[in-house]
Design a protein around this nucleic acid. Structure first.
Length: 938
RNA sequence: GCUUGGGUGGUGGAACUGGUAGACACGCGGGACUUAAAAUCCCGUGAGCCGUAACGCUCGUGUGGGUUCGAUUCCCAUCCCAAGUACCA
């Protein structure tokens, strides 16, 4: 009986050992440097994990284990973002409480995760849907409600400091982030207000506040949807109609933090592309609001926002969005018909049409003129659908000489293209947006440069009350209410004022958590109220006041969870000061880039807020972020004859000779694109047992394509199946070996045997397969063996330090191949190799560690091998000798040789002179320890 | 249209700051062992060409230019693929 690498027993044994011995429990340990490595926690869906999920978890686990070997105290937790719509949808269909489905799904996830041998500290597991967790989500909401943003101090402060300011100075000069329409009052006015009126006034300043928002309302789902949950006017989930509806919603003043969110990006080690995405999302533009008077209209002025106020003398037209509310009022009778026709046409165009058709110019003249405030020039007012009502003021000033879009518009409607800068070139052919040069034809700014001109104009506009400098952000405040059941209740109740208005009040902190009430079904009420409106009549604050019926959005619970992991059991605080001050922030955060503008922005916002209030020490919560690339599916196809009495399939290489239809085939019965015919016949009802197959070389070869991984394409690969067949260690090695972590790549199980063979080769360095005996010996290592080992040590360390997980695997493969060739079975060498391997393949490493006579279970806290350059020292370097950049031969020279010595030796060499063919080199370049290049004249 | 990312053998990929392109692995072909198979081991494997041969030659990192002694790497232009998207004035 052979004793091969028995991965099943080994993996079960060590997983049980780690659990029993609490091997990976982290603690506050000031004696060691800390390292916090975090995965974006998953939503526990009913489908379980597929091979794409563990990719990031494997990488983070490797870093966690690597940092332990380097002597760090490592916090590596896992939990579940367990509130969400799928569980609620399922509850609606089945009547089963979402908590039950959620619990089942989590149980399955944990089982799958434990099978992979991750070194999570499970004692810190969090679930956002647990009351003990969402108690603190509610608590943070209360802090937000009780805070305002003081622009003087540039941070959030308690609402009490605002009250004090209002009582002494009023709000006239107050620099605060607040509702736009808030009226400015004096201290006297404030002090004269009733308590209720004061309370109502403060609502306009709180960071969590109520506001009327236009939302995507889906009556059928009874909930509000995000823009990207709506496709073609219907809900993505279910395909129900969606309408625009104004609703009173809780919102968060994230815009208060816009500038700090931008600045913070400079201090974190995140991918530049991701930072750029966030910058664009926040969308800061510095510009000017300018008001244009309207000819023959005295009660209205058109406000435009421009980032190039310096070009205002170049305005030759003005454009309103077709949806602008003043369109009909500003249209002359003569133009009425044309305008109406245009507006109706514009309504039929999707935003995508308007975005992508840049080359076709469309628009219509309203018949009205506006007056340019700087030179009193009459300028025609147009409508055009390249202006969007939703952004800025819905009006644009047209400067054809400086903006290509405006230029196209002016050409099309035969409008003037005034030149305004002497630096502009060829503006009869195209626009030139340059800021270089001096202004011409530009009244008060003639002869100035860009900066002076801009400052002069803004000063003049402000002085005359026509405009003012303005910073505009694209990012809007975040709507925080959801008309759903399966989310955190908002810890608020409503109490009527003397006049009967309802005002929101926080519940007492001692009453947290405000738990989700039981309800009969998980749908909105018959009157369209959120599901919580169905709660029993005694679900009221102090038995008399209605609670808020909407719940919090999915991102609430995930916006602070990394702190809960620091001290997950704490019932008195979200985490203790001691824990927060030790773990501070996440050192390495791994997750998908789809969260770039959602989770990663909200989390940064809440973190900054918690810092302002002094609860946490760091401005940014994740120092280093890696986005793992999505694993795409690799579908396999069979080709069925179209006109055939018998069901017949043609192999891929022969399909072009027949008329065939391609059908997806389950990738799990295909190996290296060769179909398992028996399994195929059994797997499908539409394949009779006498189906025929036209084979090539005796095999049925399938075609393949890269597609999204989905059930309908039969390309989902379950990690459990691979673990059963090859083991978790093999899967871990293989997923890392697939390619760079960040890269998008198709899943392909084809070459997993290579990773498995690698581990078996490692095993055979220790054991004889046939005799089941140890091959290990105590003899001292040879210089050659040490060179092989230390080459690997250096490369593994270098590559892990730059998160190049895939190249570490090849390094280990080379090392094992080389040691195998050297027949090296020496304990001192293999001991170090096992440590290098352990972050990738921890189970086999534990087993081999014991075989080496080391302490059972001790490899997790072993010491990472110390690289010694002395073992790699070489006397000679093999110089590639190239001629005009093309390498022809190599020659060895001592590493101590000087370039001059090398040049002389090279030129004296026989082989070199053969290649010279009698010519004299015009130049010889010697780069020490790299290359020699001989330059020959042409 | 715009933004971001990406195009290297039959396949996944390697080449760290410009210095022997194709490491490592899969697949494929050949061989050894075996009654046979599996497993294992050995050899070959970018394309094309010449030669009896050790070997040699030409081309080659989407395409076209450029910089350089030397370019997968830097610059310009261009094509294709993927993801995102809000004409942000």
């Amino acid at each position: 009986m052979r004793s091969e690498y028995q991965f099943r027993e080994i993996e079960k044994t060590w997983q049980a050992f780690w659990e029993a011995n609490k091997t990976f429990q982290a603690q506050v340990n000031p004696a060691k440097p800390k390292y916090y490595v975090l995965d974006m926690f998953p939503y526990p869906s009913g489908a379980g994990l597929h091979v794409g999920h563990p990719l990031g978890y494997i990488a983070s686990d490797i870093m966690a284990r690597y940092k332990r070997l380097q002597g760090h105290e490592v916090l590596h937790p896992m939990g579940f973002d367990s509130f969400g719509l799928p569980a609620e949808q399922y509850a609606i269909q089945t009547g089963q409480h979402p908590a039950i489905t959620t619990e089942q799904n989590i149980t399955r996830y944990i089982e799958q995760l434990k099978n992979m041998g991750f070194s999570f500290d499970w004692s810190r597991e969090v679930r956002t849907s647990d009351a003990s967790y969402y108690k603190w989500t509610q608590w943070i909401f209360m802090q937000l409600f009780n805070s305002w943003y003081n622009q003087e101090t540039d941070k959030a402060e308690s609402i009490e400091t605002l009250k004090a300011i209002l009582g002494t100075k009023g709000s006239i000069g107050l620099k605060a982030v607040c509702d736009e329409e808030v009226s400015r009052i004096t201290a006297e006015q404030w002090n004269a207000m009733s308590a209720d009126d004061q309370y109502a006034y403060l609502l306009s300043f709180r960071l969590a506040y109520l506001d009327d928002s236009v939302v995507n309302w889906c009556p059928k789902l009874g909930t509000v949807l995000a823009n990207d949950e709506v496709k073609d006017g219907v809900s993505e989930r279910g395909g129900y109609p969606v309408e625009q509806k104004k609703m009173r919603q809780w919102s968060m003043r994230i815009t208060a933090y816009a500038d700090r969110l931008l600045r913070g990006l400079d201090e974190v080690d995140w991918a530049d592309s991701l930072k750029e995405q966030q910058r664009n999302w926040i969308g800061k533009s510095i510009g000017t609001d300018v008001e244009f008077a309207i000819e023959n209209v005295s009660d209205k002025k058109i406000k435009v926002f421009t980032t190039r106020v310096d070009t205002i003398y170049g305005v030759s037209f003005m454009v309103l969005a077709p949806e602008h509310e003043w369109v009909s009022a500003l249209t002359t009778p003569a133009q009425k018909e044309a305008v109406e026709e245009y507006v109706n046409w514009a309504k039929t165009r999707s935003e995508l049409d308007r975005v992508s058709e840049v080359k076709t110019v469309s628009g219509v003249f309203t018949g009205t003129y506006v007056i340019n405030p700087v030179n009193q020039e009459r300028v025609p007012l147009f409508l055009a659908d390249y202006v969007l009502a939703g952004y800025g003021t819905g009006a644009v000033m047209g400067v054809p000489s400086g903006d290509q879009r405006d230029w196209n518009f002016a050409k099309h409607f035969d409008l003037p293209i005034p030149s305004i800068l002497d630096g502009q070139k060829d503006i009869e052919k195209q626009a030139d947006p340059t800021k270089e040069g001096k202004y011409i034809n530009s009244g008060m700014i003639n002869g100035m440069g860009y900066k002076d001109a801009t400052n002069t104009l803004i000063a003049w506009l402000e002085e005359n009350g026509i405009g003012k400098g303005k910073v505009q952000y694209r990012m809007r405040n975040a709507v925080f209410s959801r008309q759903r059941y399966w989310g955190e209740p908002v810890p608020v109740y409503f109490k009527p004022t003397a006049s009967g208005d309802l005002l929101p009040y926080l519940i007492e902190e001692t009453e947290l958590p405000l738990e989700l009430p039981k309800i009969d079904k998980y749908l909105p009420t018959e009157t369209g109220e959120p599901p919580l409106g169905r709660a029993a009549s005694d679900w009221k604050y102090k038995g008399q006041y209605d609670y808020e019926w909407s719940t919090m959005p999915g991102w609430a619970g995930s916006s602070w969870y990394w702190y809960r992991y620091m001290d997950a059991m704490n019932s008195g605080e979200f985490a203790s000061k001691e824990a927060i001050n030790y773990w501070k922030a996440v050192d390495l955060y791994i997750g998908g880039s789809e969260h770039a503008t959602g989770h990663l922005l909200y989390s940064r916002f809440w973190n900054k807020f918690l810092k302002d209030l002094g609860y946490v020490p760091e401005e940014e919560f994740a120092k280093k972020l890696i986005n793992q690339g999505m694993i795409q599916g690799r579908s396999n196809f069979v080709y069925r004859l179209k006109d055939s009495a018998k069901v017949t399939f043609v192999s891929h290489g022969l399909k072009d000779q027949y008329d065939v239809a391609a059908l997806h085939v389950d990738v799990n019965i295909v190996e290296n694109d060769v179909l398992d015919l028996e399994a195929f016949k059994k797997s499908r009802n539409d394949v009779p047992s006498d189906a025929e197959f036209i084979l090539e070389d005796g095999k049925y070869v399938c075609g393949w394509e890269v597609e999204k991984m989905s059930k309908s394409k039969f390309n989902v690969v379950n990690p459990d199946d691979l673990i059963a067949k090859y083991g978790a260690d093999t899967l871990r090695v293989y997923e890392m070996f697939l390619g760079p972590l960040e890269q998008f790549k198709p899943w392909n199980t084809n070459s997993i045997s290579g990773s498995h063979n690698f581990l078996r080769k490692v095993w055979r360095l220790f054991f004889d397969d046939n005799t089941n005996t140890s091959k290990l010996v105590d003899a001292p290592a040879t210089p050659e063996e040490l060179k092989v080992l230390h080459t690997a040590i250096r490369k593994v360390q270098d590559d892990l330090d730059r998160f190049s997980f895939n190249t570490v695997v090849s390094t280990l493969m080379i090392c094992v191949n080389d040691l195998g060739a050297l027949k090296c079975h020496k304990k001192s060498v293999l001991r170090e190799l096992v440590i290098l391997l352990s972050p990738y393949a921890p189970h086999i490493a534990e087993e081999l560690w014991v075989a080496l006579g080391e302490q059972e279970g001790g490899i997790s806290y072993a010491t990472f091998p110390v690289f010694n350059a002395a073992f790699l020292e070489e006397n000679d370097f093999n110089y590639p000798i190239s001629f005009n950049g093309k390498v022809k031969l190599t020659l060895a020279f001592p590493v101590t040789a000087t370039p001059a010595e090398i040049e002389a030796a090279v030129l004296a060499n026989d082989q070199v002179s053969k290649h010279l063919e009698g010519k004299t080199p015009s130049k010889v370049i010697v780069v020490p320890k790299r290359i020699v290049n001989i330059v020959l004249g042409k």
